[in-house]
Design a protein around this nucleic acid. Structure first.
Length: 649
RNA sequence: CGGGGUGUGGCGCAGCCCGGUAGCGCGCUUGCUUUGGGAGCAAGAUGUCGAGAGUUCGAAUCCCUCCACCCCGACCA
């Protein structure tokens, strides 16, 4: 390929609306151009990258035995009504009407269509298993498209769907896809990690996400270097830490201390010269679920921990954060100084599973078993400590009135008495704390030396509601967790029979009996991979593409191409030789100045560069420089082709 | 959808507060010189100042409405 016949249009400055590095570099290098929000044109240079990604995926899918096909982007809305997903999908589903007023959607995914195809075409167990896939344009009307191609509305996706006679066979294929995805991302030259994921709304039994590792990634990942445990932070279970010096620390007296202007736990800890882990933060939120609308909840987290909203939602149902005026009305204090002491707590022993975990952890069993016991939520049938059995634990010093008047003004008491009892959810790590610090429900004051069972009731609702932090014990009991960030580029699901059932996708088994097919679904965000690869590979000069997906593998940069006949001949001869050898080579015959050619190709991210100049040619040499090399190396003209083949691998 | 911000040649920005000739850098065109790290000089072209309505003798600038885009939240490959 010759640059003069190609289209190269680089920008010195990135458009100001491009925020993240991959978006900026893609625009600057001229890979993409924006048409509308979240909708991009792939310029010739960008398309080459996209096609290379696509081809690797295609090769590996074929190799795994999947069949490529192509389904329509426009789908009748009826199918979505039939699967029951139409109303639920909401405004993200772009709907339109044809001239006959028939309703259609632009496919955000293709479970419905493929299931429709298969139910018509596949009738017998003899035709199963089958795996169909396509690489096709999807449209999702994202609420907020952003980050260029990373969260576009229109994007290229590889979506595959497998159909099976049994769950065992689905699991076999799932494993095949896990390995296939691993091969794909390895071949793409990306640093990635497969993590356990939430099966979420799609349902099913097993699900893994494949993440490209990048500090700018939107997803937090937790993994254990000592085992193969890896999970999205949204999911990673936070075990109860062993209390430091458990049982030995003498109980301190509760004291109310002035902490003017110290609303955040960090400020309070610094002010009181106490470790952050000694503080408790209180988060007030209001549920919005159907069964408990408008219920005021107080969540207790250790000061150094952060709330995991997914876990919280699973525990409490839909919720929102309480507004300041609601907090003041219920607790009588501004946020920053609120706390669980002296409030009317709603007693609800029905959800004390977390407490059991804590108690198990405290019981003298082996570490291994303790860790194991905490991995899975114990079954609901497990006997739960009753109110009366817990009474013994509560210090007799507990005031008869739930409101210690020392800490509350008369007016506040009245307010609280009129307020319904507050549901308090205590994070596992808070449940094992002693002598902690929390807000006093009085602006400008905190309480120190607070203890459960004396200053406030033993927690009756303990749950895992925080994000894991680095160093937390791994849920598989095999070491400590590390954290990193990732960009989700692939997702595999065991769908089971959800869609097959809804769309009546059945087959006749060996006994001539009708059975519903088991389904798996496997997606890769092709477009997003390009953005993710750039997010992972870039420096101050531009993109650093892995050779496998670079728009060109090698660029020949001739010095003084127009005027020097020796250079021109040498450059063209090398170009032809490399091309014949099957190397994806670009010859920059634009006769630009050296500096601007170097800058262009470094911005574009071509991994290998050969400079042809009279200077080296005199001695029969060419100059080679890898994209990330600091120095160029001289290579004999005759050896260059073999040299590059070796580099490219 | 809620909160914040920005719209001025292709790109990056100034001008707006305090109304009066639309400006700078990059890019683009032509010529000459230059040619191993985004060249120099000279001459040029390119704007309904996001749209509409209003105030005013006069609006990029002030007021109103709308639109687009970006950032922060919930969704997802």
């Amino acid at each position: 390929m010759r640059a003069s016949q190609f289209f190269i249009n680089t920008l010195k400055e990135a458009p100001s609306d491009a925020e993240i590095i991959s978006h900026q570099l893609m625009l600057r290098a001229g890979l993409i151009r924006r048409l509308a929000g979240g909708i991009y044109t792939w310029m010739p240079l960008g398309l080459r990258v996209l096609r290379k990604v696509e081809n690797i995926i295609r090769e590996e899918m074929n190799r795994a035995g999947a069949m490529e096909m192509l389904m329509p982007a426009v789908q009748p809305f009826e199918l979505w009504e039939e699967s029951g997903r139409g109303p639920k999908y909401g405004p993200e589903l772009l709907r339109l009407k044809d001239r006959h007023q028939r309703e259609f959607v632009i496919g955000p995914t293709h479970e419905e269509v493929i299931t429709d195809v298969v139910r018509r075409e596949v009738k017998s167990y003899r035709q199963l298993p089958r795996h169909f896939y396509q690489i096709q344009t999807k449209f999702r009307d994202e609420i907020r498209p952003r980050f260029g191609v990373m969260r576009g509305r229109e994007f290229l996706m590889k979506d595959g769907y497998s159909f099976h006679t049994s769950f065992e066979d689905l699991r076999r294929e799932y494993q095949v896809m896990y390995e296939t995805y691993t091969r794909i991302f390895t071949r793409l030259g990306l640093k990635f990690r497969a993590v356990a994921a939430d099966t979420g709304a799609i349902g099913g039994t097993g699900s893994h996400e494949f993440h490209v590792l990048a500090d700018s990634g939107e997803d937090g990942l937790a993994y254990c270097p000592d085992s193969d445990y890896a999970a999205n932070v949204e999911l990673a279970e936070a075990l109860t830490p062993l209390p430091v010096g458990a049982g030995d620390t003498p109980l301190a007296a509760m004291q109310k201390v002035a902490t003017p202007g110290k609303a955040r736990c960090e400020d309070v800890a610094e002010f009181l010269k106490l470790p952050l882990t000694q503080t408790v933060k209180c988060i007030a939120l209001v549920t919005q679920g159907e069964d408990n609308p408008g219920e005021f909840n107080l969540l207790l987290l250790r000061g150094d921990h952060s709330l995991n909203e997914i876990k919280t939602q699973k525990h409490l149902g839909e919720f929102r954060f309480a507004r300041e005026d609601e907090i003041v009305a219920v607790l009588g204090s501004k946020p920053g100084y609120i706390g669980p002491v002296g409030i009317r707590e709603k007693s609800d022993t029905s959800s004390s599973n977390g407490l059991i975990n804590t108690l198990q952890y405290r019981s003298p069993v082996s570490n291994e078993i303790k860790a194991r016991g905490l991995i899975n939520t114990p079954p609901r049938e497990t006997p739960i400590p009753t109110e009366s059995s817990m009474n013994g634990l509560i210090n007799s010093a507990q005031p008869k009135s739930p409101l210690p008047t020392t800490y509350a003004e008369e007016g506040l008491i009245n307010t609280l008495r009129r307020t319904p009892p507050i549901r308090v959810v205590v994070d596992r790590s808070v449940a094992v704390m002693r002598n902690f610090v929390c807000g006093a429900n009085d602006e400008g004051f905190h309480l120190t030396g607070v203890n459960f069972g004396r200053d406030l009731p033993i927690p009756n609702e303990i749950a895992d509601i925080r994000n894991v932090v680095e160093g937390d014990p791994s849920p598989d009991g095999k070491g400590a967790l590390q954290l990193c960030r990732g960009i989700e580029v692939g997702h595999i699901f065991q769908l089971r029979t959800k869609y097959a059932e809804a769309l009546n996708c059945t087959f006749l088994d060996e006994n001539g009996k009708d059975q519903v097919m088991e389904m798996g679904c496997y997606g890769i965000g092709v477009t997003r991979i390009v953005g993710a690869a750039i997010e992972q590979g870039n420096d101050e000069r531009g993109i650093v593409f892995p050779t496998a997906i670079a728009p060109f593998s090698v660029v020949i940069v001739p010095m003084n191409f127009a005027k020097s006949e020796t250079v021109r001949h040498a450059a063209m001869a090398l170009h032809d030789q490399l091309q014949t050898a099957g190397i994806d080579v670009m010859l920059d015959d634009r006769d630009e100045r050296a500096g601007s050619m170097f800058a262009d190709w470094e911005l574009i991210g071509v991994p290998h560069r050969v400079v042809v100049g009279e200077r080296g040619l005199k001695d029969g040499n060419l100059e080679y420089k890898g994209r990330t090399d600091s120095e160029a190396t001289l290579v004999d003209l005759a050896d260059m082709c073999a040299f590059l083949q070796k580099k490219i691998g």
